[in-house]
């Protein structure tokens, strides 16, 4: 893992995570797309490599990967209490909203406009995820072996439905065989 740089200001980070937690309709993928857009592309708090490392790690740890990413970044930047704060900021908006919706959810479900809006947002998340893959991949994939791992992981996940955690572990082993030996 590349060396961590200076942590972004805690207040600004918490504000951003509260914001992402409030607007990330579309679940964990929307959250991650927003984290990458805001923290890697716009604010440069993370390099694409650091983002990818955190994403990989979040998949092999127990827990939901989007929240794992928040925990990993919070701990790394601000220590134990900071990790708890970042996770809290990430889930607080949806916690409050779900509590609110738990009362009147039945009314929401069958409104066609609601379904259309969420359908469109879901489609936008697909596009945003592709943008994340392109901008991260542009930096990370530097040789044929890397491209082969990308292809294998994409195929394994999309067509064969291999579990992402297994894929990350297998790719780690492939990385060891390809890069670890060449270097010695």
């Amino acid at each position: 893992m590349p060396p961590a740089r200076a942590a972004p200001p805690l207040g600004e980070c918490l504000r951003l995570l509260l914001f992402i937690g409030s607007v990330s309709v579309g679940g964990g993928r929307a959250m991650i797309a927003l984290v990458e857009r805001e923290m890697v592309q716009r604010r440069r708090w993370l390099t694409p490599e650091e983002f990818a490392d955190t994403y990989a790690l979040a998949h092999v740890l127990p827990g939901v990967y989007s929240v794992n990413m928040g925990a990993i970044l919070g701990y790394r930047w601000y220590g134990a209490l900071g990790g708890i704060a970042t996770v809290g900021a990430l889930i607080l908006p949806s916690f409050l909203l779900v509590l609110f919706m738990a009362q009147g959810y039945a009314a929401l479900r069958d409104v066609p406009a609601v379904r259309q809006v969420f359908g469109a947002v879901g489609a936008a998340v697909v596009g945003m995820f592709l943008a994340v893959a392109v901008s991260i991949g542009r930096v990370i994939v530097r040789d044929a072996a890397g491209a082969a791992i990308v292809a294998a992981a994409a195929l394994g996940f999309a067509a064969l439905r291999v579990h992402p955690a297994l894929m990350v572990v297998a790719a780690g082993a492939a990385g060891y065989l390809i890069y670890g030996r060449a270097r010695r």
Binding site: F129, A133, A145, I149, A154, G156, A158, Y176, I178, Y179
Partner: peptide, 30 residues
């Protein structure tokens, strides 16, 4: 250095996972 090599492999897999998610998510929502 061994850990660095393992990370290099896992990072590439992340790009693949993102692309795979686009395909799977796209198939169900587009």
């Amino acid at each position: 250095p061994v850990v660095a090599a393992v990370w290099a492999g896992m990072r590439a897999a992340v790009v693949g996972l993102l692309l795979g998610a686009v395909v799977r998510l796209g198939a169900s929502s587009l």
